[in-house]
């Protein structure tokens, strides 16, 4: 084990410990926290952010950022809703939604790679374009009321575990394998670590970067499916600020905004910390204004640790 990977592990240990301590504190403060229904609750509430954060982790490890994910959630969602309302079969509607997510990601990636623009600018622009497209498409109105089969994607359960939680676990499993066991995954780290060196090593950085943003678009569309099923409605204004929640989960989980390092396990724990915090603060009756302060403090605290660790290493 190299020194750097040992540090990554230590960092993740810190994140897990943070989650454990946070949960213990809540357990001590309220009898309602550590119950099976409530934990399933938290898992379900975390699932959407956790899935979006998968793509964000790929992007941030590669040294980029994707601010358009929330808007992609909205556009994929309303397209899905409209397709279902229009009488399309469920698989067709799902394919349309996922296709739109991937397309948005491909556009992001292509402009970043071939246009040579900073990801922040491109995805900021796409955030607005895609949101606008969702509003134009729906004329600002939500698309509602779907059949029970579709709604079971959120309301259904398998052995007591809600469907969104199962979907989240499946997405993490697949994404984890892709990130750690495939060439593509290695290139994600390599591009974030040293893009120029990766290019000189003969890797098509442009192609792989484009694919990374496509992954982000794809998982955002998956989150849109769950969100739409959960609310039984697709709203053009859905997913506002999801990009910030996903970035927060990713950095709390120890992925460096500088790129080149991070892990999906960390991101999952990061998303859970945010979910547990929100749930716990609700259970304790903490005002929603104070909740924002606490969540902000946790984000800064987590990244502070990251930064101090790096200073140690150098």
């Amino acid at each position: 084990m190299t020194r750097s990977s040992r540090l990554t592990h230590a960092r993740q240990f810190g994140t897990v410990l943070g989650l454990v301590v946070l949960s213990s504190v809540l357990w001590a403060l309220t009898p309602h926290f550590l119950t099976v229904p409530n934990l399933l609750n938290v898992a379900q509430q975390t699932s959407i952010n956790a899935i979006v954060a998968v793509g964000m982790t790929f992007v941030i490890i590669s040294g980029g950022i994707d601010l358009s994910v929330g808007s992609i959630v909205a556009l994929s969602g309303v397209a899905l809703g409209a397709a279902l309302q229009g009488g399309q079969a469920l698989p067709v509607a799902l394919a349309i939604a996922l296709g739109i997510g991937v397309t948005c990601g491909l556009v992001n990636g292509a402009i970043i790679s071939w246009g040579g623009l900073p990801p922040f600018i491109v995805t900021l622009g796409m955030m607005s374009i895609v949101r606008g497209a969702a509003l134009v498409f729906t004329e600002g109105r939500p698309v509602s009321s779907f059949d029970p089969l579709f709604r079971s994607l959120a309301a259904g359960q398998l052995g007591g575990v809600p469907a969104p939680v199962i979907a989240t676990m499946a997405v993490y499993l697949v994404a984890h394998v892709v990130l750690t066991r495939t060439t593509f995954g290695r290139y994600v780290y390599a591009i974030g670590g040293n893009e120029e060196a990766t290019r000189l090593a003969g890797v098509s950085v442009r192609f792989h970067k484009t694919m990374i943003y496509a992954v982000s678009g794809l998982v955002s569309a998956m989150a849109a499916v769950i969100l739409t099923a959960r609310l039984n409605s697709a709203q053009p204004i859905a997913g506002t600020m999801y990009e910030l929640d996903a970035i927060a989960a990713t950095v709390i989980g120890g992925t460096s905004l500088m790129g080149g390092e991070g892990s999906l396990a960390g991101t999952l724990v990061g998303a859970l910390i945010m979910g547990v915090l929100r749930n716990g603060l609700n259970l304790l009756g903490v005002s929603s204004f104070l909740q924002q302060i606490v969540i902000g403090a946790v984000i800064i605290g987590a990244v502070l640790i990251d930064t101090v660790l790096k200073r140690h290493r150098n």
Partner: peptide, 13 residues
């Protein structure tokens, strides 16, 4: 970090 977390949660309670 954990202490800060705990404190922030406790102080809001």
């Amino acid at each position: 970090f954990v202490a800060a977390l705990a404190a922030s949660v406790l102080s809001c309670n």
